[in-house]
Design a protein around this nucleic acid. Structure first.
Length: 430
RNA sequence: GGAGGGAUGGCAGAGCGGCUGAAUGCACUGGUCUUGAAAACCAGCAAGGACUAAUAUCCUUCCAGGGUUCAAAUCCCUGUCCCUCCA
């Protein structure tokens, strides 16, 4: 959420900044609401003040043994008037909140202009796409040789699910373990295990709600929809991990906070009919190792580079060619101020595909989360900045390992950093 | 499944209709003392909001939502979460 103060005092600047990401809103309507909010708030507060002072004088008069009847008569109508003013003010404030909650974050200055992923800017490249003296297979053909099974998954659940058995299941697990170890032992993150079902407050905190409910799987613990017991399957580990710190005033000495967690992610893919229907690229359920950092405002962009570097470290260790892309304003996620996508080379598609998305949210999430620390100099609480990134998406990493390290006979060479996680195995063969 | 107890500032914890935005301790900030530090002592220290050039002033907030009252942290109802005991 953007700051209400900013919306109040600088609507035009906000509107202009959001134009960069093709978001527009009714400035006039907002200003009109703002004006009536002001009027009603002042009026309500005056009435409250009146009631408070009257009540106090009644208390004093009573204590002094005076007759309070005339005083009571003078406040007789105050209650109704106050109630009316309050409910009017509340309805205005709800409307303003709805607008504020639906507005995306303002892109950072270094975010390139553009409307779609075609306008994203390549920042750097690592490694060279491999040369193969045989016809390469894609991960579906390779995977089916080694235990990747979409048909069985379809029987159990439907489209966009997968089953893995045998060595490929172990490779999938090995990737997860390796990533967790690298981030916790070398990169200094604290490992976290978190719930996979979360309440709506958590999703509001990180920005998935109220706008993107259609992307989520929703459960009703018992009873019908509308029940208080609605929980959502997490669309990313970012949600529970970041929300661990919701409503906290962090001790400055503990900063930066760094957490890594392995969770499944569940996405309805409501807007992706017909896209990536083949293989593991776009699934309703996939594993991800997520990095989250909470830092002071002045450190956040430096931290974005660092965190992206941590994700890159995994790709490099796995010997997977990739490129780093600065997302253009039009392609930026709702809550992000700046995002680097890491795109891994997939020989089966002859294309770079997203495998990690590393974002700085500035104080956009922190404001919704009420995540702050006490600034020593001002002695005032200040919003922190949140960041996260996939380090990495495990399913897509598996795809990349299969495709990049395939051999002529369809066997898979296991990157050396993974071999100890695979019981010393060097190749996966049939 | 049944019976109780609880949720208060960064943390711990008192308060149980008007004198309470809230005792006390810890933490934190500043100071005295000290070569320096610790200890001790002194002082300060909740958040959010309105209005304002700023100060001043005012409003809201003691788990959440309703209710009673001129007045609610305090009384009543509902919900959530925690704890204890019984089966």
């Amino acid at each position: 959420m953007l700051s209400k103060k900013q919306l109040r005092n600088d609507v035009d600047a906000v509107a202009k900044a959001l134009q960069k990401r093709n978001f527009s809103f009714d400035i006039k309507a907002l200003s009109a609401l703002e004006n009536s909010r002001k009027k009603n708030q002042v009026k309500t507060q005056e009435l409250q003040n009146l009631r408070n002072t009257q009540s106090k004088s009644i208390g004093k008069a009573k204590a002094a043994g005076e007759d309070i009847k005339p005083l009571l008569a003078s406040v007789a109508d105050l209650g109704d008037e106050l109630d009316a003013a309050k409910s009017e003010l509340q309805s205005i404030q709800v409307q303003i909140d709805d607008i504020a909650l639906s507005m995306p974050n303002i892109p950072h200055d270094s975010v390139p202009a553009g409307n779609s992923e075609d306008d994203n800017v390549e920042v750097s490249k690592w490694g060279e796409p491999g040369q193969y003296d045989f016809e390469v297979k894609d991960h579906v053909d390779l995977g089916e040789m080694h235990g990747l099974d979409f048909e069985t998954a379809a029987k159990i659940s439907g489209a966009r699910f997968s089953v893995m058995t045998g060595k490929i299941a172990r490779l999938h697990r090995a990737l997860t373990q390796f990533m967790l170890d690298q981030h916790s032992e070398i990169n200094g993150y604290t490992e976290a295990y978190v719930p996979y079902l979360v309440n709506s407050e958590s999703l509001t905190g990180t920005g998935q709600l109220p706008k993107f409910e259609a992307d989520l799987f929703k459960t009703h613990l018992h009873g019908e929809e509308g029940d208080a017991k609605t929980l959502y399957l997490i669309p990313t580990g970012e949600v529970p991990i970041t929300n661990m710190m919701r409503d906290t005033l962090v001790n400055e000495k503990e900063l930066p906070l760094k957490f890594v967690g392995h969770t499944p992610s569940f996405r309805s893919e409501a807007g992706a009919y017909g896209r990536d229907t083949r293989g593991l690229i776009r699934q309703h359920q996939f594993e991800k190792v997520e990095l989250v950092q909470v830092v002071k405002a002045q450190d956040s962009y430096q931290t974005l580079e660092q965190l992206t570097g941590h994700a890159e470290g995994i790709l490099q260790a796995l010997e997977l060619p990739y490129r780093k892309v600065n997302l253009c304003a039009g392609d930026l996620g709702f809550s992000a101020a700046k995002t680097y996508d890491l795109e891994v080379w997939l020989p089966g598609q002859s294309a770079y595909r997203e495998i990690s998305s590393c974002s700085c949210f500035e104080d956009f999430q922190a404001r919704r989360l009420q995540l702050r620390y006490k600034n020593k100099e001002t002695n005032k609480p200040e919003l922190l900045h949140t960041l996260n990134g996939s380090g990495l998406a495990v399913g897509r990493t598996l795809v990349a390992v299969l495709e990049n390290h395939q051999q002529a006979d369809g066997s898979i060479k296991i990157p050396s950093v993974l071999q100890s996680y695979m019981g010393g195995l060097e190749f996966i063969t049939q």
